[in-house]
Amino acid sequence: MKNITPIKQLGNSVLVVHSKSIPYIGKKHALEVKCIKIDFDLSSVDSLIELEKHLKFNPWEDVSDDESSSILRRMQESFSEKDISEKIAKPLSESYSTSSFEGLDQ
């Protein structure tokens, strides 16, 4: 779960991003911040997409720190370690490492 942060929620869906990309949300490099939509009802994990696109279409709501912890726990209960690693952590990490803000000191 290292570097996975739930950032927005809507019903039983959440958007997760790479933790280090959070400072860049909504700013100059906003379109490089990618997210993954997880639907707990459908037990589905979408592919990587620009966070801004999801925020444009739907009234996503903030995730508080408490909610963030419980969402991460729920992810562990709902998905296998392999799925979390391959379908969530790996694409987020790859996307972050190829972004133009990777390695910048915040």
């Binding site: 909504g26 700013k27 100059k28 444009k56 709501e61 903030d62």
Partner: peptide, 21 residues
């Protein structure tokens, strides 16, 4: 009516998030 994601902004910190759009 439909709502947009600006209406879900609760914390001052997340005010930064929708600036791009």
């Amino acid at each position: 009516r439909w709502k947009n994601s600006y209406e879900g902004v609760k914390s001052p910190g997340s005010r930064n998030e929708p600036y791009y759009r």
